[in-house]
């Protein structure tokens, strides 16, 4: 079975985000970019499936600017076999919407015929939480989102999902889309030798036009602003003082 893992290049989760003064968006020039953390978990899971003999090939795909090839090399260094870069933008500030990403991914799936797509639950930049669900809709495949456990057995996958009340386990028929949550695994670090090896692994470059997908946005960004600041608080010196303040504020 082939596993396809879409990986997104996003601002590193440790970077403090700055909204541009003119309200046109968030400043992404010269900031540290990394693989979306959820996608590292997806790549890790795909590699584990290969190590367990369940999968025989792990293909990673990224859609966006040319620089996304760094993200793909990173996935190859973790242990993916092959990468596809779909160039769909030339400005790092252009975010391709989940619907367009899903359409491109559908075209990639049609070509590659994977038995499983493992995506992240959410990209930490646009916080959409949508692409995996949209891709499964376009393919007419089952979806198992927010996975914290995954077991593949023949042509079914049993997935435990993180839901509001706790955990839900479902079985889906393969091929399927699974989106991964934080507790599925702990991604490995790429070792130096593997980083070197990854430079020689195949990375195919395509464009959105190759797949005939129109990536123009459906949501026009009217403006981007800073969230409301909280007024500065105070430090209290003791529990007694804390309780007094809370009583004054009517909070207890």
């Amino acid at each position: 079975m082939k596993v396809l893992v879409p990986v997104k290049r996003v601002i590193d989760y440790n970077v403090k985000v700055r909204v541009k003064a003119d309200g046109s968006g968030v400043d992404l020039a010269n900031v540290k970019m990394s693989m979306n953390p959820f996608d590292e978990i997806a790549v890790e899971q795909a590699i584990r499936l290969k190590e367990a003999g369940t999968a025989d090939e792990v293909v990673v795909v990224s859609i966006g600017v040319k620089q996304s090839q760094e993200t793909l090399r990173n996935a190859l260094a973790m242990g993916a076999d092959r990468a596809i870069l779909v160039v769909a933008a030339d400005d790092v500030h252009t975010d391709i919407e989940p619907l367009a990403v899903a359409k491109i991914l559908k075209a990639v799936v049609d070509e590659e015929q994977p038995g499983l797509v493992l995506a992240g639950k959410q990209a930490i930049d646009n916080d959409m939480n949508a692409t995996g669900q949209m891709l499964s809709a376009l393919l007419g495949w089952p979806q198992a989102t927010f996975a914290s456990e995954l077991a593949v057995d023949g042509d079914t996958a049993t997935v435990t999902r993180e839901v509001d009340g706790g955990l839900q386990t479902i079985k889906v028929k393969m091929p399927a889309i699974v989106t991964v949550d934080l507790r599925l695994n702990e991604p490995r670090y790429a070792s130096l030798p593997n980083i070197m090896k990854a430079k020689k692994k195949p990375l195919e470059e395509k464009t959105a036009a190759d797949y005939g997908v129109d990536v123009s946005p459906r949501l026009q960004i009217v403006g981007t602003s800073e969230p409301a600041e909280r007024a500065a608080g105070i430090k209290v010196g003791s529990i007694d003082e804390l309780v007094e303040k809370l009583k004054e504020a009517g909070a207890v």
Binding site: N126, I221, S225
Partner: peptide, 30 residues
């Protein structure tokens, strides 16, 4: 497109939603 986690309705086509873990608020018109 889906418009996830709307925090304000500006008009029938226009919505606010947080991005980047709430470090920015985006206004989008569908």
């Amino acid at each position: 497109m889906v418009i996830s986690e709307v925090t304000a309705v500006i008009d029938a086509d226009t919505f606010e939603r947080p991005i980047y873990a709430g470090n920015a608020i985006q206004t989008v018109k569908s």
